[in-house]
C-alpha cells in the first residue's frame, strides 16, 4: 500500500506491506532507526513516536494509521540544526545512559510539554510512566524534563 503523510515536518510518500507496523515502516522502510524496538508488545515505550502530537506505540499501531497524519520521531526533534531543549537537557543532565529508552522518553516528554509547559515533578512521572528505563532510576530524566519545561524557567 502507498502511504502519504507528514514525517518530521516534510511530506512523505512510502510503500509498505499491509502487515507492517509503524515501527517496521520507520526502521525498515525509511531507515529511521532512532525509534527503538524494546519488547514488540507495547509495554516498554521505547518505540514511542508522536502522531498528530499524541504519543503512540509504534510497535502496536499498523503503518496504515499514519495516512494523512503528522508523524514526529526523534530524528525530527531537531529544527534547523538546533536541538530541542529536551534533547539538550537530557544530554547535559546525564538523563541518557545507555540511551535505548531515550528517543521514546524524549517524545513522551515532548507530548507532555506541548500540552503543559509547566508540569510538576509528579506530573512528569505520570506522563513518563509508560516508558521504561533500566539505567537511570528516572531521577535525571525527570530533572531534565523539568529543566526543559518552558513554563518553569
Amino acid at each position: 500500500m502507498t502511504l502519504t503523510f507528514v514525517l518530521n515536518g516534510h511530506p512523505c510518500t512510502a510503500e509498505a506491506p499491509a502487515h507492517w507496523t509503524v515501527l517496521d515502516l520507520l526502521r525498515d522502510g525509511l531507515s529511521l532507526t532512532g525509534t527503538k524496538d524494546g519488547c514488540g508488545e507495547g509495554v516498554c515505550g521505547t518505540c514511542t513516536v508522536l502522531a498528530d502530537g499524541r504519543p503512540i506505540r509504534a510497535c502496536l499501531v499498523l503503518a496504515a494509521h499514519v495516512r494523512g497524519r503528522a508523524l514526529v520521531t526523534v530524528e525530527g526533534l531537531e529544527t534547523d540544526g538546533r536541538l530541542d531543549p529536551l534533547q539538550t537537557a537530557f544530554a547535559e543532565r546525564g538523563a541518557a545512559q545507555c540511551g535505548f529508552c531515550t528517543p521514546g522518553m524524549l517524545l513522551a516528554a515532548k507530548a507532555l510539554l506541548t500540552e503543559d509547559p509547566a508540569p510538576t515533578a509528579q506530573e512528569v512521572r505520570e506522563a513518563l510512566s509508560g516508558n521504561l528505563c533500566r539505567c537511570t532510576g528516572y531521577a535525571k530524566i525527570v530533572e531534565a524534563v523539568l529543566a526543559a519545561a518552558p513554563g518553569r524557567s
Partner: peptide
C-alpha cells in the same frame, strides 16, 4: 565535573549506534 558525554549528544538525536541499527 558533570560534563555532558559525547555519546549522549548522539543518543538524544537517535543516531544509529546500536548493533541492530545497521542493515
Amino acid at each position: 565535573t558533570s560534563a555532558a558525554r559525547a555519546d549522549a549528544w548522539e543518543k538524544v538525536r537517535g543516531r544509529p549506534i546500536y548493533a541492530g541499527d545497521v542493515a
